[in-house]
Amino acid sequence: MGQTLRQQARKQVNEASATRKRAWEEREARLVGAAVEVVAAIVARDKAEKAAATAIGAMTGEQATLTEIGERCGLPLKEVIRLKRTYLVEPPHPHSARPTGQRVSEPRPA
């Protein structure tokens, strides 16, 4: 009879363990799916921002000021400046000590 009780107890423990394991696997699958969505959204955002910055570059090539670009696009000037600084490099100035192609950094606060 002692063996039967042990077998029943083992079966009960195994069933509880299997239930916990299934719940963990389901949660893990949901978390992986959500992580994929996060990364995909960030990649899409970065691509969209690069395209916006390219358009800003084209507009500045047409002699539009950053203020005008912001007004035309309904964007705050800070956003236009951020996109330009983040994704566009300024052409080198003839008397600049900065190497060609280096990303433009933001000015440091005084």
Rank of each mutant, 00 (worst) to 15 (best):
E79W: 08
E79V: 12
V38Q: 11
A29C: 03
L83C: 04
G2C: 03
Q102T: 15
D46F: 04
T100Q: 12
L5E: 13
Q63P: 00
G57E: 02
V89A: 14
G61D: 15
P109N: 11
A110L: 11
V89W: 05
V13E: 11
E37L: 13
P109D: 12
G2D: 09
T4M: 07
A41S: 14
M59N: 00
P99D: 06
V104N: 14
E26M: 10
G61V: 05
P99H: 04
A51R: 06
E90G: 13
T67H: 04
A35M: 11
S105D: 01
A58V: 01
P99A: 10
R108T: 14
G57C: 07
R10G: 00
A16T: 10
K11V: 06
A58R: 06
G33W: 05
R82G: 00
S17H: 12
V43D: 08
H93G: 15
R45I: 01
G2T: 05
L77Q: 10
I69T: 01
K21I: 12
T65P: 05
T100C: 05
L31C: 06
W24T: 14
R20V: 11
A40R: 15
Q7S: 13
T65N: 06
E25Q: 15
T67M: 04
I42R: 14
L88W: 04
P109K: 13
A16D: 12
R98V: 15
E28Y: 12
A58F: 01
Q102N: 02
A29F: 06
V80L: 06
A23K: 13
V13W: 05
A97H: 03
V104C: 11
E15W: 01
E90Y: 03
A48Y: 03
E79G: 00
P99Y: 02
S105H: 01
Q7C: 10
H95W: 04
I56Q: 00
G101L: 05
G2V: 03
M59F: 02
R103K: 15
A58L: 03
R6H: 09
R45N: 08
Y87S: 02
E28L: 11
P109W: 06
R103S: 10
V38R: 14
W24F: 15
E26W: 04
P92H: 12
K47L: 15
K84C: 02
R82N: 09
N14I: 09
R22C: 03
K78C: 05
I81P: 00
A55I: 08
V32G: 00
E49D: 12
A64M: 13
E15F: 03
R108Q: 11
A40D: 15
L31Y: 07
A51W: 00
P91R: 10
A34G: 05
S96F: 02
E106D: 07
E26H: 08
S17R: 15
A35F: 09
V38E: 10
A40N: 14
P92R: 15
A40I: 04
L5K: 13
H93I: 03
K50T: 02
I81N: 06
Y87V: 02
R72M: 04
Q7T: 09
A18V: 07
R82C: 02
A55Q: 14
T54F: 08
E79A: 10
A110E: 09
V36A: 06
R22G: 00
T4P: 00
A41W: 01
V32N: 04
A44R: 10
